[in-house]
């Protein structure tokens, strides 16, 4: 096989493994499925060429989905990662919204402490105290929304009900 064929084969295995992981297939099953696909792709490539071999297999996401129907499990690690990323992104959004709010308070020159909550961060609070030359005090509390967003992402990705169904 040519170098380019080996690269294409490696890339196909990588994507297949990625989707199998997303669909909650364990490491050992993933390795077996990946090796089997590589063996079949090599045999097909020797017969019809790597391009045609990959075409025959079709979308690797669909293949991973079909191959993992009965071996999907709860993917705790992927769920935790997704939950942390989602919570961090919503915290970042809250941080930028708070800055925008503080900028508005400073521009208005209101001269006294102002506090509010920021939509859609239910339960959040932002207090801005512009003391002119003496400085600026901003205190923020993001509320429960980032936590809920993180939890929702965790549940969506980890699919914990699979663990319940198996037990």
């Amino acid at each position: 096989m040519r170098v380019t064929d080996n690269v294409r084969l490696w890339w196909a295995q990588f994507r297949y493994d990625f989707w199998l992981d997303i669909y909650g297939v364990g490491r050992r099953d993933r390795r077996d499925l990946r090796r089997e696909l590589a063996g079949n792709l090599r045999a097909a490539a020797a017969d019809v060429g790597m391009g045609q071999a990959l075409l025959g297999v079709g979308g690797l996401r669909r293949l991973a989905h079909e191959s993992s129907r009965e071996i999907r499990r709860t993917s705790w690690s992927a769920g935790i990662s997704a939950g942390l990323v989602a919570a961090a992104l919503s915290l970042l959004a809250f941080f930028f919204l708070s800055l925008y709010y503080a900028e508005g308070v400073i521009d208005s020159g209101v001269g006294r402490p102002v506090s509010s909550w920021l939509f859609p961060f239910v339960g959040s609070s932002v207090e801005v105290n512009d003391q002119g030359r003496a400085g600026l005090e901003v205190s923020v509390s993001p509320g429960v929304l980032p936590l809920l967003v993180g939890l929702a992402a965790f549940v969506a990705v980890a699919r914990p009900w699979r663990a319940l169904r198996r037990s």
């Binding site: 089997e36 297999v57 079709g58 293949l63 079909e66």
Partner: peptide, 11 residues
């Protein structure tokens, strides 16, 4: 297609 046969074998 291969993409139909391989998952069927696994199943």
């Amino acid at each position: 297609a291969e993409g139909t046969v391989y998952p069927a074998l696994t199943r």
